[in-house]
Design a protein around this nucleic acid. Structure first.
Length: 564
RNA sequence: GUGCCUGUAGCUCAGCUGGAUAGAGCAACGGACUUCUAAUCCGUAGGCCAGGGGUUCGAAUCCCUUCAGGCACGCCA
């Protein structure tokens, strides 16, 4: 639960504020108020461990040159009870801080103490967050887009958990409405075609073309024969849907499970109708005067709440739209279940939904800032160097199950989380399958396996990882060692930023950096066979690296193999 | 036509709440295994940050504009 980088930033801010106050008191600077003092880690080592640009930001108010301000501040700084060793003015007016190495040694003590909890922070303070993701129509198998959304959503949820939120993972099952009708028509058409021949009935134009629909009906016929051949069509469709829908859902659930995703709640759209919540919501909106009639349909005044156009809620045939039940669903999330914050993941092809959903939430009297909609860009699949087109209509999409079979869970989850959600993702199937250095996931896993191997070997000689207080950590002084520890120290702050930006892709980059620094350390520094006190210190370091890699991979739900 | 996303090394992408000399991986080239896992490491090379204007001490980052690609503009979801 310790974020040492965060603590040091706070130390620096406090030192700067006190220096400003002291300088003001001596009449060297006017009384200047600043909202936030920016402390960042410079790229160049010569620029110290941390730096601030405060002197350049207050030039106007101070009516002095930035370099002059910086030196005044530095002269008035007090480093007592901080990790700061010295500060320097550099460049156009930066103040660079150089830290005492003890902060790195403290980092190792923290990791050794917190272990699997290292990296956990508490910015969430236990507030209730729902992450709703994938939520694909249960009318067919999951595809590549769902695979990206799944990896992203699940990792966002895990990162938020690590950041101290009380997270619920939820899948919204669209088991009501239009697409279920279409699903029923498609099943019925295939059913009749299988029994009476291709030409017996025409397949609905906008029906689901996928092979899976036919498979369902083959299975159904095998089990129940032609008993629905002369049944009432509505009855027949219902029966076929009742047969196929649970099977699809089960397949989806299993697929996601083997992808490492476990939901807390599977929320049925139909349940909103059955419980009366849907009607309540419409009545509520009606009472608030949020709805109006036009051309026989019922509209929501979304434009009153910042959207670009109004939206139909109830069609002129009396059937509610998807949006209508989604409003009821969000009322349920916020009002009935009391989530402090709701995060929905949506593919870029649904981004039009953002403005109207925000408007709806606002209309319900909920602060729209409590609703985050993460839009992720679509996936382009490459195979044999060319784009493998995935079309849902022709049913020739590559499914999640195919992906897991070909690529495997670890590589798929890693690759989907290497890119920020906003960037388009080219998924190279050939590369993902390759078990080589071109595939980044193995680079990280290899570092972990390598460490396990070292620990195993030493353990065989009766040498185990020591406690931090029985080790002289100051023996760790090589640049490879110090750089590595510094990287380990950043981990809790990485969690913080990933949680705040909802971007777990930072973590794949971070853990790759850790692995890289470890591999460099490994080639430069030996552990086994070194003089005992140095060996112990390095052993503790190596064990800390293992802890951090394992913790990150756990968040990503990627395995951390002990042997490779 | 309107809105959203994207444009950075040969390729895939970081950096985008403005900061110091623009980074990483892969590919290319040259090196390193009698010692804890070479699925590794070290080095070299590679750039008008799509183009053009602006804002300021300072712009890949903010604003305007042009161009290119993706997506969406339905009483589908």
């Amino acid at each position: 639960m310790t974020n040492i980088i965060g603590d040091i930033r706070d130390q620096i801010r406090s030192v700067v504020r006190k220096a400003m106050a002291a300088a003001t008191e001596k009449g060297l600077l006017p009384d200047i108020s600043v909202d936030e003092i920016i402390v960042e880690a410079p790229k160049e080592k010569e620029h110290g461990d941390f730096s601030t640009n405060i002197a350049m930001l207050i030039v106007k108010k101070a009516r002095k040159a930035p370099v002059q301000i910086a030196s005044i501040l530095i002269d008035n700084m007090d480093f007592t009870d901080t990790y700061i060793e010295r500060a320097e003015c550099a460049g156009p007016g930066f103040i660079n801080f150089f830290l005492d190495r003890s902060w790195l040694y403290d980092t190792l003590r923290i990791i050794s103490r917190e272990r699997e909890d290292y990296g956990r922070i508490n910015i969430g303070q236990g507030s209730k967050v729902m992450v709703e993701f994938v939520s694909a129509n249960p009318t067919g198998p999951l595809h590549m887009g769902n695979a990206r959304g799944g990896a992203l959503g699940d990792c966002i949820a895990s990162v938020l958990q690590a950041a101290g939120y009380d997270v619920t993972r939820e899948y919204y099952v669209n088991d009501a409405g239009n697409q279920i009708e279409k699903f029923g028509m498609s099943l019925e058409a295939r059913y009749l075609q299988l029994l009476k021949g291709e030409d017996a009935v025409e397949f609905p134009e906008d029906g689901y073309q996928g092979e899976d629909i036919i498979d369902h009906m083959r299975d159904y016929i095998e089990e129940y024969g032609d008993k629905l051949l002369n049944a009432d069509p509505e009855q027949r469709r219902r029966e076929l849907v009742d047969y196929a829908l649970p099977r699809n859902l089960e397949r989806i659930r299993k697929g996601l499970e083997s992808y490492g995703i476990h939901y807390d709640v599977w929320f049925s759209e139909q349940s909103l109708y059955d419980s009366g919540e849907f009607e309540e919501t419409i009545n509520y909106m009606e009472d608030k005067g949020l709805l109006y009639e036009k051309e026989g349909a019922k509209w929501f005044k979304a434009t009153d709440f910042g959207a670009e156009k109004d939206e139909v809620i109830i069609r002129n045939n009396g059937i509610p739209t998807y949006f209508a039940s989604d409003i009821a669903y969000h009322r349920n999330k916020f009002e009935k279940r009391g989530f402090d914050r709701v995060i929905n993941l949506l593919g870029a092809d649904h981004h039009g939904h953002v403005a109207r959903m925000k408007a709806a939430v606002k209309a319900l009297g909920v602060d729209p800032a409590k609703l985050d909609i993460v839009i992720f860009q679509l996936v382009r699949l490459f195979k044999n160097g060319e784009i493998a087109r995935m079309s849902k209509r022709t049913g020739r999409a590559i499914s999640l199950d195919d992906l897991l079979e070909e690529v495997g869970r670890d590589a798929a989850r890693f690759i989907f989380n290497t890119k920020a959600s906003g960037s388009h993702l080219d998924f190279d199937l050939d590369l993902a399958v390759r078990q080589s250095n071109e595939n980044p996931v193995y680079y990280v896993q290899y570092a972990h396996a390598r460490i396990c191997s070292m620990l195993r070997l030493l353990d065989g000689e009766g040498i185990s990882v020591p406690d931090a207080d029985e080790v002289d950590l100051t023996l760790l002084a090589a640049p490879e060692e110090l750089d590595l520890i510094k990287k380990l120290a950043e981990y809790p702050d990485e969690i913080r930023i990933s949680a705040q930006t909802l971007e777990p892709s930072r973590l794949t980059r971070y853990v790759t950096d850790v692995a890289s620094l470890f591999h460099s350390f490994y080639t430069e520094c030996r552990v086994k066979g070194e003089e005992e006190s140095l060996m112990k210190a390095r052993l503790l370091l190596v064990s800390a690296v293992k802890t951090v890699i394992k913790n990150v991979l756990d968040i990503l739900s990627i395995s951390a193999p002990e042997r490779m």
